[in-house]
Nucleic acid binder design. Sequence first.
DNA 1: CTGAAAGCGCTTACAG
DNA 2: CTGAAAGCGCTTACAG
Lengths: 320, 320
Amino acid sequence: VARLAGVHASTVSRFFSHPAVISARTAARIESAVTELGYAPNLVARSLASSKGRLVALLVPDLAYSNFNEAIEEITSGLANADMNVMLCLTGSSPERTEQLIAAAMRWRVDAVIAWTPIPPGGAKLLRASGTSVLQISDVSSDPVDLGIGFNEFEAGRALARFVGERGYVRPYLVATMGPYSARRREGFVKEWRRLNGSKATEQRIDPPANFQQGRRIFADIRRLKRRPDVVVCASDYLAQAIIVEAGASGLRVPDDLAVIGFGNTPMAGDMRPTITTVDLHTKRIPAEVLSVLDARGRGETLPRQHIDLGFDIIARESA
Amino acid sequence: VARLAGVHASTVSRFFSHPAVISARTAARIESAVTELGYAPNLVARSLASSKGRLVALLVPDLAYSNFNEAIEEITSGLANADMNVMLCLTGSSPERTEQLIAAAMRWRVDAVIAWTPIPPGGAKLLRASGTSVLQISDVSSDPVDLGIGFNEFEAGRALARFVGERGYVRPYLVATMGPYSARRREGFVKEWRRLNGSKATEQRIDPPANFQQGRRIFADIRRLKRRPDVVVCASDYLAQAIIVEAGASGLRVPDDLAVIGFGNTPMAGDMRPTITTVDLHTKRIPAEVLSVLDARGRGETLPRQHIDLGFDIIARESA
DNA sequence: CTGAAAGCGCTTACAG
DNA sequence: CTGAAAGCGCTTACAG
């Protein structure tokens, strides 16, 4: 490889890693040799030798009905553009599996892990021991292993309660998924609702994922209630979509007979009939933040352990 | 590490890779040392030394509205269970990006690449040069780089045309995405329809992804037609879902005024109102096939270059 | 600016 | 069954 260019292997290595150092003449010679041989450095060896693998682990609970696939896509594409590869780790919301996957990521010596799912204590320990950059997309109230980014679930819950009240609804039905983050949102909603109205919000807890399928069951539950709620506050846009569909099938008008609020502001929400009132989580900002953090760390800057608040917005549309 | 157990490093290595060879006594000693130190072998080094990285590249066009996220999930989980990690490569249906990602995967010396997206000639060349196992999920009529798996798009199109005819529809509206695979399906539909009815099917080509958003526009196009079709044959269940929603919003009954057929048999299809008639592609079988192939290759078996036909089924439900 | 050497942390024939 | 040695393909101080 280096022989063809008539230089030492270390010079070829520099050609790739520190091109600025190389003289124009040798660079040209190496260049032509490289193209002639179709050579591309072995990244496994590079990673081992330099401990900079440009590999990032992405931990997500699932792909199938995620509110966040678009953000995941953008993160992945952004990383690819920055010449980094991503290891896909599907946790299925299982702490054991999450820990296993973190262990595997550590063994691959990933440069960073991006987690859109809770990190169990065992996983946090592994992460801390390794000193890897960790970016957790999570509630601001959570205590991040390293860097956190996300919105304030509790405040989102409160804001939803206020919104529901301002719109004149009096019997909200709250659908929350189990899990640490949405638990805070639920809490915010319930507390604020009580504070404002002195009454309890009806609620239902479901297991993730908050997908279309679950909506049908939830609607059936709602129908069975002696007193129908006037608004359903959902844990995802897919749930909201399904409830709207079910409502339509049973002759209820949305929002007149039953209002519906989603969560996540997926593009579908704006195209549904009626369009879905929902909460935008500013996830579009995540990829850029992730990349800037990784970049800063890559340059050796020391970022403090902190949480970046992305904020959120309630998007009022037709469904509520 | 090995010192604590009082053995040579190579013995520790064997403890992990060939445990059967180790005596019970030393195995126990190593075991305790390993747990005490919390040691786990560096996979980068293992990969470099053994050229068996247990790393697989997964090439998919997108995540956001894929018909196939569930299958992707299953493949990924299946691989994780088999102690393999996956590199996520999002091609965005771009040949250039696909080629770049394949190049990166080769540089990571992945054991296999699973591609649910067309492989451009440049990528195929890289793949062939490296001798990596390639599993393409694609039309059976395509010429796989190595191993192919999937159904026959052309026959699926023909079957749909027959189904539509048998159900008594006379003015089908075919929505096909651009792209090599669905082009074959389109062709099958158009040819079979002409053969049976002597008439041309109305059609519309769209760019991927065939997501909910596009459905609204398509429905608007359909409304503008002087003569309304009696059935819309969609490129995905999401498209079908959106068209059903739009139809409902404009007072058309499905299937009486307008029938709709999806593609892919996502779980949502069975829960929609009305439930969506669609095509099941037997993608559930893919993970097992992928794993068995990888396993066979891992054991050194030589599998011939071939295409596995998964077949398909039209699932008749309420929407058509 | 470039070469020679050591090293990254494993695996794997080869002896014993 | 285990040890000693070489090697996987790079990078990176260290000289020059």
